[in-house]
Write a protein that binds this DNA or RNA. Structure first.
Length: 657
RNA sequence: GCGCCCAUAGCUCAGCUGGAUAGAGCAACAGCCUCCGAAGCUGUAGGUCGCAUGUUCGAAUCAUGCUGGGCGCACCA
């Protein structure tokens, strides 16, 4: 935070100076770390920009800027370099000592109420790696937003009345001829992975529809019964959805992903959220019923007038079908209104499960119940992030436009679609999964996963593979002299596997399609989560060894008060401190741009600098106590920064590696 | 057809609101474990930043137009 403050003060000083010396108002001022450390710690090309307006050589302007300039705390000097850059250097010693006391301190809580909706997997089959990208992006965003002081509520929306659930119900009833009791028996059967079973069943059903088009009538009937909560069919849908959601929650928990609330579509229907939203939309004239044409009888939202939707061949979006049923977008508009507290009704709640720390994961309910009184206040946030892949960009725009048409343009502005590209499979991976790859697909870089075809890598399968590989690495890496229990190997294996997976999903820009390849996902070297863990464990080991050898690191709170650095830090040491100081800025930039890869990339750079330092500058064997102290401070800065930052990524620091 | 996204080293990607000599990882090659544990480190090699024009003191970054690829544009979600 200190570094950001210095940047702020310096920016202010420079702007004021430009105004008083040259009468120039500088709107935006670039002030960033120069490309090489020799050029100082912060630099601005502002004189180059001013040169045009002032018709003076940039260096001359720079020299006038510098002459007699007052500098903020910790800024030691300013020089003019290159074509006319202003380069600032920090007082390395005093900065390091002050920085150490405040590394990665979270912002004070009490900020804005924010809802992040993510995961949102159809509860009809096992989660796959595409869902993992969603959940990991969402969860990491949540962690960063909280660290920045926001009060965040995490929602995982459950579409328990949709076509996908209906299709599995159809398969159980018509393909297998089973009823609710038999489905419940399958769920209770410990030898069966119910979500895996449904994965296969769902793709069989899709195939059946294709071979026997008449069977689509089953889907229509089933969908209707589910939506109207009729009989055994609706019961079965609820039973299936609940069991699968439970499994999804367990899968995500393996990665450290937790939620606050599971809003269910069935409750949105039962509690007539849509009816209310529909009234509002009709009142505002933003939806009309078509009397003729191909949409005759439908209620549509007219989008032709909005600049956002310019050029669309079909500028109208159907919200209510001619048979009177509401589309998904309609329900989503109602849900989005509720999130902002703009719908004059709300849910009932009941606990779905309890996490190991006692925190309750709530689900919505359609009726009052004894536990409802204990539920916290949900919804009514000031800002909403919907983590949904880019293919739904158009629908998310429609939802946003719905808010705007209802006069809630502020909320529309504060609705953010956190979009990201899909996870696809390389042809090699698809083949490895036993999927026939068509000849025309062979030359492609990647193939889209398909739930209907059963083509995809299941989340738990990938995790299992990662865990066993990590455990194996622990086992072989430990050597014989060390006693490691199987239990500890298990723990370490999971921690390392999760690090590899979370980092893998975060390190790519969100607009990049990830062509999933087992080899790359299983990599523990180089630009990877385990690399960061390893570097941190190394730092921890240094201090553990120090304690064991009775060497006082002199880094406790008391010693730090009187700590002096002595000689200034050399470049290799200082670079670590400066990168550490830049980390909060990296978190902020990552959240502002929704590019979480900014953070992983920054931390990787920090890790590299540390590993390099680790080899070059031994600490325990350094004879000079002052030099040893300087190096220890550096290692301490690193481990505190990395430990706190890994927490933001949902990555644990293992006890050993 | 219209809209959005992508194109940077052999492969996978960084490159922050335009700024100083375009950087990593993997793969390749050459080194480093009696020395805080080699999941590591050091070095070598590898680039017409898809193409063209333009804006600018300055363009991988901005604008326009191309080329190639992906995704959307359902009374599915």
């Amino acid at each position: 935070m200190m570094f950001e403050q210095i940047i702020e003060e310096l920016t202010e000083i420079l702007k004021t100076r430009a105004l008083s010396l040259f009468g120039q108002v500088v709107e935006r001022l670039v002030l960033q770390s120069p490309p090489r450390l020799a050029m100082g710690d912060l630099a601005t090309p502002m004189a180059l920009e001013l040169a045009r307006a002032l018709k003076q050589p940039p260096r001359k302007i720079a020299e006038r800027m510098v002459d007699g300039m007052a500098l903020p705390n910790f800024v030691q000097s300013v020089t003019v370099e290159g074509a006319g850059y202003l380069n600032f250097r920090l007082d390395r010693g005093s900065f390091t000592i002050s920085h150490l006391a405040a590394i990665m301190a979270p912002a004070l809580s009490g900020g804005e109420r924010v809802i992040v909706e993510h995961t949102n997997i159809n509860p009809n089959k096992a989660a796959h790696i595409g869902h993992l990208r969603n959940a990991i992006l969402g969860d990491t965003l949540v962690r960063c937003l909280r660290w920045l002081g926001n009060r965040v509520e995490t929602q995982n929306y459950i579409d328990d009345t949709g076509v996908q659930v209906a299709d599995v119900v159809v398969a159980f009833e018509h393909l297998l001829g089973e009823g609710v009791a038999q489905v419940e028996a399958r769920i209770a059967d410990p030898s069966l992975r119910f979500d895996y079973f449904c994965w296969d069943l769902y793709s069989k059903m899709a195939q059946y529809y294709q071979d026997t088009p008449n069977s689509l009538e089953w889907r229509r009937e089933t969908l209707h019964r589910i939506e109207h909560q009729e009989g055994q069919t609706a019961k079965m849908a609820a039973v299936i959805a609940r069991a699968i959601v439970g499994q999804h929650i367990r899968t995500m928990l393996r990665l450290g992903v937790e939620y606050d609330l599971l809003p269910k579509e069935s409750d949105i229907i039962t509690l007539h959220f849509w009816d209310r939203a529909f009234e509002l939309l009709k009142q505002s004239d933003s939806v009309i019923q078509e009397k003729e044409g191909k949409h005759a009888g439908c209620w549509v939202m007219k989008l032709a007038d909005s600049a956002e939707f310019e050029g669309l061949e079909e500028p109208d979006k159907i919200l209510v079908r001619s048979n009177g049923t509401v589309t998904y977008v309609g329900k989503d508009i109602a849900y989005q209104l509720w999130k902002f507290g703009l719908l004059d009704r709300t849910f009932f709640y009941r606990p779905f499960t309890r996490y190991s720390d006692g925190r309750v994961l709530w689900e919505t309910a359609s009726h009052d119940n004894p536990e409802n009184v204990d539920a916290p206040h949900f919804g009514g946030a000031g800002r909403v992030f919907n983590v949904i892949d880019v293919r739904q960009a158009y629908l998310q725009k429609v939802v946003k436009e719905g808010l705007r048409l209802l006069g809630h343009s502020r909320e529309a502005e504060r609705s953010t679609h956190f979009s990201y590209e899909m996870v696809a499979l390389t042809p090699a991976t698809a083949r490895a999964l036993g999927m026939p790859v068509r000849e025309e697909d062979e030359s492609k870089n990647y193939l889209e996963m398909s739930g209907r075809k059963g083509l995809g890598v299941k989340a738990d399968d990938l995790l299992d593979a990662l865990v066993s590989k990590a455990a194996e690495a622990v086992r072989t890496g430990m050597g014989e002299e060390r006693e490691v229990s199987e239990e500890e190997i298990g723990t370490l294996g999971v921690q390392i596997a999760v690090a590899a997976l979370r980092y893998f999903m975060l390190k790519y820009g969100r607009n990049k399609v990830i062509a999933f390849d087992f080899g790359e996902a299983l990599a523990f070297e180089g630009d990877s989560g385990p690399y960061l863990q390893y570097s941190t464990v190394r730092a921890d080991n240094i201090f553990r060894k120090m304690a064991a050898r009775q060497v006082d690191a002199r880094l406790d709170a008391h010693s730090l008060n009187g700590l002096t650095i002595g000689k200034p830090l050399g470049d290799d040491l200082w670079e670590i401190v400066r990168l550490s100081a830049e980390t909060p800025g990296a978190v902020r930039r990552a959240v502002d741009s929704l590019e979480l890869s900014i953070l992983t990339h920054h931390l990787f750079e920090l890790g590299q600098k540390f590993n390099s330092f680790y080899h070059k500058y031994p600490i325990l064997n350094e004879p000079d106590p002052d030099e040893r102290q300087r190096r220890a401070v550096c290692a301490e800065v690193f481990r505190r920064t990395m430990t706190a930052s890994l927490e933001l990524l949902g990555i644990a620091v293992p006890a050993r590696m």
